[in-house]
Amino acid sequence: MQELLSAQQLSLTINRLAHQLTENGEDLSSLVFIGIQPRGTHVAKKIVEAIAAIHPNTPINSGFLDITFYRDDFREELHIPKETTITFSIEGKKVILIDDVLYTGRTIRAALDALQDFGRPRKVELCVLINRTFNRELPIQPDYLGIAIDTTPAQKVKVNWETEQALLY
């Protein structure tokens, strides 16, 4: 087991991402931050908290998206859906999809499909905490990135949200 990010590094990384996401001075009301269920929600919450600390008293659009019904491996394994909470329109907005680990890219493909059912965003970007650079199965790359690591398929990358560490097994 190897520590990829300590709790302190993780907090610094989240803060950096929060600054990067808002650095071009776009109006926050035109941005939407969406955490992908289940584990992207933790990252999204932290990032939204960090942005709120940088821009106090500004409402931030944020929600969670469950992609279960859009999976391409539905026939192999039955997945139980989690909550989707997008209570606002994403029409014409810039949507930032947030997840913890980017690996095959299939989750993001499903999330892009799911997002379409909520309207037509102006732009969709991807923010991930950890990018596993090999083994992508679809042409998907992050726009905002915590760290990039090279892994083999036999390895596992996990963020433990209790100890706030990112670990490589």
């Binding site: 469950d66 019904f69 859009y70 859906p81 909550e83 989707t84 799911a114 059912d117």
Partner: peptide, 19 residues
């Protein structure tokens, strides 16, 4: 509990999933 998630689907602008 699964029906609860489908109820949310039915409130989306496009009320259809490809499952």
């Amino acid at each position: 509990s699964t029906a609860q998630q489908f109820k949310e689907v039915l409130q989306r602008p496009i009320k259809k999933v490809p499952s």
